[in-house]
Design a protein around this nucleic acid. Structure first.
Lengths: 370, 370
DNA sequence: TTGAAAGCGCTAACAG
DNA sequence: CTGTTAGCGCTTTCAA
């Protein structure tokens, strides 16, 4: 073969062997640019020590041919897919409880942003491991929201050697790579103190029947607090995945003979549920009943009255979880522990203040001043 | 080589060449089971005409070794990844507006379920095509929510020969494979008729400044309706991605000298925004002001008063979009058109009825009866 | 009925 | 500085 004809072989209009018509491959680019496929790869990936001219030329040709590298081939070769799994523990029949609470949506959004910013994409996966889908997608790692104790998905993933970071302190000895969580205990204690300071004498709790960490820690904190201040616990539980059940439970709580004069609701919809229940019983908020619920929803800023909420800062959690996971994937070593505690925020509004901050009546005004 | 030693070569404890320790490959299974890799592949994928005994044996060995087929290799070989992209047109800086409205979350959830049920997973992707991530993931097709006219992402995907199904009728000549949408025009006309029947004399509109199809069609329908009944249009627009702006616009609308006696808000938070604004102006709902907004949020069932909402049925849309897309991916032919119109639902509550359905005061009761 | 061999399209050693 | 070569792990003809 003559030197001149070095890569002329497949140049010209040779239309590729099997030639899936349409998409150009790396060899087409190489041929069209008159270089080897290595040079194309290097030029496009910013590797090697090519002269700028070559690099530019190759990029131009690739662009002109509409060349798109095959993600599958790259993944197979490099062992990295750039894909991160996202799983949410399911409560009902649905594969996940995305919408039930604004929390998940917010968290997922932040996680997606953070992943995208570092060149990764999120794949939404079901919480059940038997699903074929899990083995059909090449994952670099996984984010697990609220893993249950002995979670089979986590166990399997770890066995495969994949990094797993959980949102929510893993129960038991679940071997996650890292986790991010709030200090639920502290948050609840603070909040109860806040209610007590606002004049509450008997604080009730609206909680869940599920055994996830969040529910468990929050409820335990409540019981401890009651014990500490010598109040008899007053609470109602319901299956948190069922939105109707929340309203019923709220009603039950306010129907009790030992009716609380303040209530904390663990779940997002509890605010409106409790408000509606209070209305049915002719209870004024905050005069007769103080209200706080854990929620990320902005509607509570404009309810009548606005309701104090505890924010778990899902955005910060989503971001942190993804950073930790990608660090693990890319082998970044962490000095500190692989646990990260995100502070919560109590957003105090009218519903938990016996005396509203301002007693002066403001005229109709633009509400931007919040 | 003796017949007996046929595949003994790599059996024994030969630990694989490069041997990424831990994960077993198809050859390991073949060696351990004393068969060829072809047989393993066939046995595991239910192909070929193997005797049941062989099949069972191979599966057993694979299970014992904890064998997981490489998704990347399979994708490279078959050209199918089982991955579907999901993109949401962005309004602000965030990669997408997931949370802003319950609509997106609901739709995404339904889409995820539907995809999972057919063996596919959803990958969340940014709306901007320049993002590297797009070319880093092997997609079988993409769902695009609310594509803008001439959407570059869609154009590029179609050029690559990938099926694209959009939620929202594509504007202009966007060459999507199929689309699903509501009949926004009919929905708005119906809803305005409903308000007029409830006694509204001057209906106002809270709309957006964006030019997406939903906003445009709804606003146009409103203007047409006004023309038809001879009412002067009364509306305020604001950038829908900014939650604060909504409250301000609601306030502006009710502050007008030609104040409407009924309002339809195009976006999810408008209900609470308008309710708060009405309160500031001392307007009673529904006595002085009838209210309807387009929302999927359940909070409107328990606001004071409950607010009538227009549901776009995001679940049905999400499901339909995914079915259509997977059909296209798998080459299922459709007799009918590739357009699908999902009916909307007007959920009538107190806020749009001059006379509440029941004037009898119910005693405190379980709210399940809804 | 089962196995050998040929790649899918790419990247990473290693030559030249 | 650039090209040749050897696979990544699997599925799929095709031959035995």
């Amino acid at each position: 073969m003559t030197a001149a004809g070095k890569h002329q072989v497949s140049r010209a209009e040779t239309p590729r062997r099997g030639g899936r018509q349409g998409r150009a491959g790396i060899r087409d680019v190489a041929a069209a640019a008159g270089v080897s496929i290595t040079t194309v790869s290097d030029a496009l990936n910013g590797k090697g020590r090519l002269p700028d001219a070559t690099r530019r030329h190759v990029r131009e040709v690739a662009e002109r041919l509409g060349y798109r590298p095959s993600a599958a081939a790259r993944t197979l070769r490099t062992g990295k897919s750039g894909l991160i799994g996202l799983t949410v523990t399911t409560y009902g029949d649905e594969p996940f409880t995305f919408t039930e609470f604004a929390y998940f949506a917010e968290m997922a959004r932040a996680a997606t942003s953070a992943a995208l910013a570092r060149g990764y994409a999120l794949v939404i996966l079901p919480a059940t491991s038997r699903h074929d889908v899990w083995s059909n997608v090449a994952l670099d790692g996984t984010v697990v929201i609220d893993p249950s104790d002995q979670d089979p998905v986590v166990t399997e993933l770890v066995r495969q050697g994949l990094p797993v970071v959980s949102d929510g302190r893993p129960a038991g000895t679940l071997p996650v790579t890292a986790w991010v969580d709030n200090d639920h205990r502290a948050a609840v204690l603070d909040l109860l103190d806040h209610l007590a300071a606002a004049g509450a004498r008997r604080i009730g709790l609206l909680t869940g029947t599920t055994t996830d960490t969040y529910t468990r820690l929050s409820t335990t904190a409540y019981l401890h607090w009651c014990e500490r201040v010598g109040q008899a616990p007053v609470y109602e539980s319901y299956p948190a995945h069922d939105p109707c059940a929340g309203a019923v439970a709220a009603d039950r709580l306010l129907a009790r003979p030992d009716r609380p004069d303040a209530v904390y609701g663990l779940f997002d919809p509890n605010g409106t549920d409790l408000l509606a229940a209070a209305r049915r019983y002719g209870l004024r908020v905050p005069e007769d009943l103080l209200l706080v619920c854990c929620s990320e929803s902005t509607v509570y800023a404009t309810t009548e009255p606005p309701i104090t909420t505890l924010s778990l800062k899902p955005r910060r959690i989503g971001t942190a979880v993804v950073q930790l996971l990608i660090d693990a994937i890319e082998g970044v070593k962490h000095d500190g522990p692989v646990e990260q505690v995100i502070p919560t925020e109590l957003i105090v509004r009218t519903s938990s203040q016996r005396r509203p901050p301002r007693t002066t009546v403001s005229p109709p005004r633009s509400p931007t001043g919040d």
